[in-house]
Amino acid sequence: QVALSRTQVCGILREELFQGDAFHQSDTHIFIIMGASGDLAKKKIYPTIWWLFRDGLLPENTFIVGYARSRLTVADIRKQSEPFFKATPEEKLKLEDFFARNSYVAGQYDDAASYQRLNSHMNALHLGSQANRLFYLALPPTVYEAVTKNIHESCMSQIGWNRIIVEKPFGRDLQSSDRLSNHISSLFREDQIYRIDHYLGKEMVQNLMVLRFANRIFGPIWNRDNIACVILTFKEPFGTEGRGGYFDEFGIIRDVMQNHLLQMLCLVAMEKPASTNSDDVRDEKVKVLKCISEVQANNVVLGQYVGNPDGEGEATKGYLDDPTVPRGSTTATFAAVVLYVENERWDGVPFILRCGKALNERKAEVRLQFHDVAGDIFHQQCKRNELVIRVQPNEAVYTKMMTKKPGMFFNPEESELDLTYGNRYKNVKLPDAYERLILDVFCGSQMHFVRSDELREAWRIFTPLLHQIELEKPKPIPYIYGSRGPTEADELMKRVGFQYEGTYKWVNPHKL
């Protein structure tokens, strides 16, 4: 086992960053958080920038500027975001240094004079007029057009580079997404736009490419001749908990499936790229999406959770019991969808996408189930092999396979070949997804960000279904809070070829 401390991990990262040409360590950078008073800024962006600063992973002359409508001070920003920093008493001095680099400007999102004030403020910072500028839009999409237009007109660096990070949702359907994309691309070049999907920053999602293309053993079996089906799962054990009003506007397909799960599907299904260059990788992902037809209604199961009468606390409440959810809402909190990649490698292999709230566990994984062994000599005792990439929690890679049961006879039983990170790298604290992705933006690497043509294809696949749901308002199937979801989803999976045995229990190697 390799035991690495946080300091050692960050030392390795620093070495990698400083050796590259793309990370300008000594240049002045300004990180501007648009929507600095909001939840995302408070819980994710400010803490992430602090962790990067604490670990010495930001360029040395980096300033952080918050911008929002609320009249706040840096002290206010500190008060609301610091509880999420997880700072230790030993880091007190470092924390003071961090907040000394912070400033805040209040202004409207659609007022040109406010942006001119913001620009004057940035120019007044040390070497601010020639600094590289990175704008993070932690804002609702309704203000994107006004904000990007004003940034472009008043706040661009004339000497350094300018980059803009856009948070999902990128529209509600193909038409609104196209409108937003066309607007942003009329102001910024594609190499300046970073559409963030934080799932692409997760260690195991990034590991998929290495697993596939750096190991000879997987190449020959990664196709329709050997793989019976692919299941991509995202499960949350909690409901909307008072935030249903926002969720109800989008629903589970827009929230998770059309982005996170579809991105994971691309990494499983794509061909080997010409290189690890950002556009070479994204070219292959677009090719996969172009091979997927629009979702067919007979390959869809929609569910909505109801309270568990035997549960406790939140578990007793259904989705419609959330006071922020519109009365009688038919918005799905669970969806199972089957897609097919219609190309030579994957023809006929079902890709089953499942996601839901208020389920029995927290889990995100990719599961490849292989065909049955031909010419069975073990009297149907063999179960199908599976390769599982567990994204969260407890990152893991393992192969479910058959071995001989101890004893006199040739009785096979299920076991696993474990390729888990935790076994080799004991207690290594890896940077989280937002840390990686923000560092990628500083480096100018777009590999783990969504390109406009990729986004367009993703919406093309799901828009007809979303429009049909909005028009017909089908009643989702009720499922109990804390269950596996509607049984109809299991029946759909069985119908397209997935075999669920229920006889195997994964042993978490992190707890051995």
Rank of each mutant, 00 (worst) to 15 (best):
residue 256 V to C: 10
residue 259 N to A: 14
residue 259 N to D: 14
residue 260 H to E: 15
residue 261 L to A: 07
residue 261 L to V: 05
residue 262 L to S: 05
residue 263 Q to I: 03
residue 263 Q to N: 15
residue 264 M to T: 13
residue 267 L to W: 15
residue 268 V to M: 07
residue 269 A to Q: 02
residue 270 M to N: 03
residue 270 M to C: 10
residue 270 M to Y: 00
residue 272 K to M: 12
residue 273 P to N: 00
residue 274 A to H: 13
residue 276 T to V: 12
residue 277 N to F: 11
residue 279 D to F: 01
residue 279 D to C: 08
residue 282 R to Q: 04
residue 284 E to Y: 04
residue 286 V to T: 13
residue 287 K to G: 13
residue 291 C to L: 09
residue 292 I to P: 00
residue 292 I to W: 03
residue 294 E to V: 07
residue 295 V to L: 08
residue 295 V to K: 02
residue 295 V to M: 11
residue 299 N to S: 12
residue 301 V to H: 01
residue 301 V to L: 09
residue 302 L to T: 05
residue 306 V to H: 08
residue 306 V to W: 04
residue 308 N to W: 09
residue 309 P to W: 05
residue 313 G to T: 14
residue 315 A to L: 11
residue 315 A to E: 08
residue 318 G to A: 06
residue 318 G to P: 05
residue 320 L to E: 08
residue 320 L to I: 12
residue 322 D to Q: 06
residue 323 P to L: 12
residue 324 T to F: 12
residue 331 T to R: 10
residue 333 T to K: 01
residue 336 A to C: 09
residue 336 A to Y: 05
residue 337 V to Q: 05
residue 337 V to I: 09
residue 339 L to G: 03
residue 339 L to C: 15
residue 340 Y to F: 08
residue 342 E to F: 05
residue 344 E to I: 05
residue 345 R to A: 11
residue 348 G to D: 03
residue 348 G to Q: 05
residue 349 V to N: 01
residue 352 I to T: 01
residue 353 L to K: 01
residue 353 L to P: 01
residue 354 R to M: 10
residue 354 R to S: 12
residue 355 C to P: 02
residue 355 C to I: 04
residue 356 G to N: 00
residue 356 G to P: 00
residue 357 K to D: 02
residue 357 K to R: 15
residue 358 A to P: 01
residue 361 E to S: 15
residue 361 E to L: 06
residue 363 K to R: 05
residue 365 E to Q: 05
residue 367 R to W: 04
residue 371 H to C: 10
residue 372 D to W: 04
residue 373 V to Y: 15
residue 374 A to C: 09
residue 376 D to G: 15
residue 377 I to V: 14
residue 379 H to I: 09
residue 379 H to D: 15
residue 380 Q to I: 06
residue 381 Q to W: 11
residue 382 C to V: 15
residue 383 K to P: 15
residue 384 R to K: 12
residue 384 R to C: 10
residue 385 N to E: 13
residue 386 E to Y: 01
residue 387 L to R: 01
residue 387 L to F: 06
residue 387 L to V: 14
residue 388 V to N: 06
residue 388 V to Y: 10
residue 391 V to Y: 14
residue 393 P to N: 10
residue 395 E to L: 08
residue 396 A to T: 12
residue 396 A to M: 15
residue 397 V to P: 07
residue 397 V to M: 15
residue 398 Y to A: 14
residue 400 K to L: 14
residue 408 M to L: 06
residue 408 M to V: 13
residue 411 N to V: 05
residue 412 P to E: 04
residue 413 E to Y: 14
residue 416 E to W: 14
residue 417 L to N: 15
residue 419 L to Q: 04
residue 420 T to W: 15
residue 421 Y to W: 14
residue 424 R to N: 15
residue 426 K to Q: 15
residue 430 L to Q: 14
residue 431 P to F: 03
residue 432 D to K: 12
residue 435 E to K: 03
residue 435 E to W: 05
residue 436 R to D: 15
residue 438 I to Q: 00
residue 438 I to A: 01
residue 446 Q to K: 11
residue 447 M to G: 09
residue 449 F to D: 01
residue 451 R to N: 07
residue 451 R to H: 13
residue 452 S to C: 04
residue 452 S to Y: 04
residue 454 E to W: 13
residue 455 L to A: 04
residue 455 L to M: 11
residue 458 A to Y: 14
residue 460 R to F: 00
residue 465 L to V: 12
residue 465 L to M: 10
residue 475 K to W: 10
residue 477 I to N: 10
residue 478 P to S: 09
residue 480 I to C: 13
residue 482 G to W: 07
residue 483 S to T: 13
residue 486 P to F: 02
residue 486 P to I: 12
residue 487 T to N: 11
residue 493 M to G: 10
residue 495 R to M: 11
residue 501 E to H: 11
residue 502 G to K: 12
residue 503 T to K: 13
residue 504 Y to I: 13
residue 504 Y to R: 14
residue 510 H to R: 11
residue 511 K to D: 09
residue 511 K to C: 06
